[in-house]
Structures are given as structure tokens and as C-alpha cells.
Amino acid sequence: HSHMSHTQVIELERKFSHQKYLSAPERAHLAKNLKLTETQVKIWFQNRRYKTKRKQLSSEL
């Protein structure tokens, strides 16, 4: 499990705020920019979407 830097997370968050789903080319581009693997980016987005979904569910209770 590799640790992401604060800067990388900020960039991922910024991208996520604009779009929740990335196409393969977008993911490849973002990964390259942030010096991450595409898998890391993919998993981060999956986890981030899951967290957002959970938060929405709990706020509706």
C-alpha cells in the first residue's frame, strides 16, 4: 500500500469535485501528472465515491 502525498490528494480531490467518474484516458493522464499508477487513481476514486455515498445515506437518516 503506497502513501499519497498531501499534494496528490489535493489534486485528486479537485478533480473529483468536477467529475466523479474518469474515463480511462483521463485516468491515465491524471496518474501521469501526479506520478501515481492508474490503479491508484482508480481505487482512490472508487473509495471516494463510496465515502460520498455513505455520507449522503447517513445524512438522510
Rank of each mutant, 00 (worst) to 15 (best):
residue 24 A to W: 12
residue 59 S to E: 14
residue 8 Q to H: 03
residue 42 K to Y: 06
residue 41 V to I: 09
residue 43 I to C: 13
residue 4 M to K: 02
residue 48 R to I: 09
residue 4 M to N: 01
residue 50 Y to Q: 11
residue 36 L to R: 00
residue 39 T to S: 13
residue 14 R to D: 05
residue 20 K to W: 06
residue 26 E to R: 02
residue 51 K to F: 07
residue 14 R to T: 05
residue 3 H to Y: 11
residue 33 N to P: 00
residue 14 R to L: 08
residue 37 T to D: 03
residue 9 V to P: 01
residue 56 Q to P: 14
residue 61 L to W: 04
residue 12 L to N: 00
residue 40 Q to T: 06
residue 38 E to K: 03
residue 45 F to S: 04
residue 20 K to Q: 12
residue 3 H to M: 08
residue 17 S to G: 06
residue 12 L to F: 01
residue 30 L to E: 01
residue 9 V to A: 06
residue 51 K to W: 11
residue 9 V to I: 14
residue 22 L to A: 01
residue 30 L to H: 01
residue 20 K to I: 04
residue 51 K to R: 09
residue 26 E to I: 05
residue 27 R to M: 09
residue 31 A to H: 01
residue 15 K to L: 14
residue 36 L to T: 04
residue 52 T to Y: 15
residue 41 V to P: 00
residue 27 R to C: 06
residue 24 A to G: 10
residue 30 L to P: 03
residue 25 P to M: 13
residue 13 E to S: 02
residue 41 V to M: 02
residue 13 E to T: 05
residue 19 Q to L: 10
residue 15 K to I: 14
residue 15 K to M: 14
residue 57 L to R: 03
residue 59 S to I: 08
residue 35 K to L: 13
residue 55 K to M: 11
residue 18 H to C: 15
residue 16 F to T: 01
residue 11 E to F: 06
residue 14 R to F: 12
residue 23 S to M: 04
residue 45 F to H: 00
residue 35 K to E: 06
residue 15 K to H: 11
residue 38 E to Y: 05
residue 61 L to K: 11
residue 54 R to I: 14
residue 26 E to G: 02
residue 36 L to H: 01
residue 44 W to F: 03
residue 35 K to D: 15
residue 16 F to L: 01
residue 61 L to R: 05
residue 43 I to Y: 09
residue 33 N to W: 13
residue 51 K to D: 11
residue 44 W to A: 01
residue 7 T to H: 11
residue 20 K to T: 05
residue 59 S to P: 10
residue 58 S to P: 12
residue 11 E to Y: 06
residue 4 M to D: 00
residue 17 S to R: 11
residue 23 S to Q: 01
residue 8 Q to I: 07
residue 55 K to P: 15
residue 61 L to N: 14
residue 26 E to M: 04
residue 52 T to D: 15
residue 51 K to Y: 09
residue 55 K to T: 14
residue 56 Q to L: 15
residue 42 K to V: 05
residue 58 S to W: 09
residue 8 Q to G: 02
residue 4 M to Q: 03
residue 29 H to N: 14
residue 58 S to F: 07
residue 60 E to L: 15
residue 49 R to P: 02
residue 23 S to V: 00
residue 35 K to A: 07
residue 22 L to N: 01
residue 13 E to H: 04
residue 55 K to C: 15
residue 55 K to E: 15
residue 19 Q to H: 06
residue 61 L to Y: 12
residue 52 T to E: 15
residue 16 F to R: 04
residue 47 N to S: 07
residue 55 K to G: 15
residue 43 I to W: 05
residue 21 Y to M: 02
residue 44 W to P: 00
residue 18 H to Q: 06
residue 31 A to L: 02
residue 57 L to P: 14
residue 36 L to F: 01
residue 49 R to F: 03
residue 38 E to A: 11
residue 24 A to R: 09
residue 33 N to I: 15
residue 17 S to Y: 07
residue 37 T to Y: 02
residue 50 Y to G: 10
residue 20 K to V: 09
residue 32 K to R: 05
residue 8 Q to M: 05
residue 10 I to P: 00
residue 51 K to C: 15
residue 29 H to F: 05
residue 38 E to C: 09
residue 49 R to T: 02
residue 18 H to P: 01
residue 7 T to F: 15
residue 20 K to S: 06
residue 16 F to V: 01
residue 39 T to H: 12
residue 31 A to T: 02
residue 34 L to V: 03
residue 25 P to A: 13
residue 4 M to H: 03
residue 51 K to Q: 14
residue 45 F to L: 00
residue 54 R to M: 12
residue 49 R to E: 04
residue 12 L to Y: 01
residue 35 K to P: 00
residue 10 I to V: 10
residue 41 V to R: 00
residue 46 Q to P: 01
residue 59 S to F: 05
residue 15 K to P: 02
residue 21 Y to W: 10
residue 28 A to G: 05
residue 35 K to Y: 08
residue 46 Q to V: 14
residue 4 M to G: 00
residue 45 F to M: 01
residue 1 H to F: 12
residue 6 H to G: 03
residue 45 F to G: 00
residue 18 H to Y: 12
residue 55 K to I: 08
residue 16 F to M: 00
residue 46 Q to W: 06
residue 8 Q to S: 01
residue 47 N to T: 07
residue 50 Y to P: 03
residue 8 Q to L: 03
residue 57 L to W: 07
residue 39 T to I: 10
residue 14 R to I: 03
residue 27 R to S: 04
residue 10 I to D: 07
residue 41 V to F: 13
residue 5 S to E: 04
residue 14 R to G: 03
residue 33 N to G: 06
residue 3 H to Q: 08
residue 38 E to P: 14
residue 57 L to K: 15
residue 52 T to R: 09
residue 12 L to R: 01
residue 24 A to C: 08
residue 51 K to E: 15
residue 30 L to N: 00
residue 4 M to L: 07
residue 13 E to I: 07
residue 52 T to V: 09
residue 60 E to Y: 07
residue 20 K to D: 01
residue 61 L to H: 12
residue 37 T to F: 03
residue 13 E to A: 05
residue 1 H to K: 15
residue 49 R to M: 04
residue 43 I to K: 11
residue 49 R to S: 02
residue 3 H to E: 09
residue 21 Y to T: 06
residue 18 H to M: 09
residue 25 P to E: 13
residue 61 L to C: 15
residue 56 Q to M: 06
residue 1 H to E: 08
residue 10 I to K: 11
residue 22 L to F: 02
residue 15 K to G: 04
residue 61 L to G: 09
residue 9 V to S: 04
residue 55 K to Q: 14
residue 58 S to M: 09
residue 18 H to I: 07
residue 17 S to E: 11
residue 7 T to A: 15
residue 52 T to K: 14
residue 58 S to T: 12
residue 44 W to M: 00
residue 31 A to Y: 01
residue 10 I to R: 11
residue 49 R to C: 08
residue 23 S to L: 04
residue 29 H to D: 11
residue 54 R to G: 15
residue 50 Y to C: 15
residue 55 K to V: 13
residue 52 T to L: 14
residue 53 K to W: 11
residue 1 H to A: 08
residue 59 S to L: 11
residue 44 W to Y: 05
residue 23 S to I: 01
residue 52 T to C: 15
residue 17 S to H: 14
residue 33 N to E: 13
residue 27 R to G: 02
residue 23 S to W: 02
residue 54 R to D: 15
residue 24 A to F: 10
residue 28 A to P: 00
residue 42 K to I: 07
residue 7 T to M: 11
residue 17 S to A: 09
residue 5 S to N: 06
residue 40 Q to L: 10
residue 10 I to E: 14
residue 43 I to M: 10
residue 24 A to E: 08
residue 50 Y to A: 15
residue 54 R to H: 14
residue 60 E to N: 06
residue 21 Y to Q: 06
residue 23 S to E: 02
residue 20 K to L: 03
residue 40 Q to P: 01
residue 19 Q to T: 12
residue 52 T to A: 15
residue 40 Q to I: 05
residue 48 R to M: 14
residue 40 Q to W: 02
residue 6 H to M: 08
residue 14 R to W: 05
residue 6 H to A: 11
residue 4 M to F: 13
residue 11 E to S: 05
residue 53 K to C: 15
residue 47 N to Y: 14
residue 30 L to S: 01
residue 14 R to E: 04
residue 28 A to H: 12
residue 23 S to F: 03
residue 37 T to S: 12
residue 36 L to E: 00
residue 34 L to D: 01
residue 13 E to R: 05
residue 48 R to D: 02
residue 59 S to T: 10
residue 61 L to T: 15
residue 49 R to W: 04
residue 43 I to A: 05
residue 18 H to G: 05
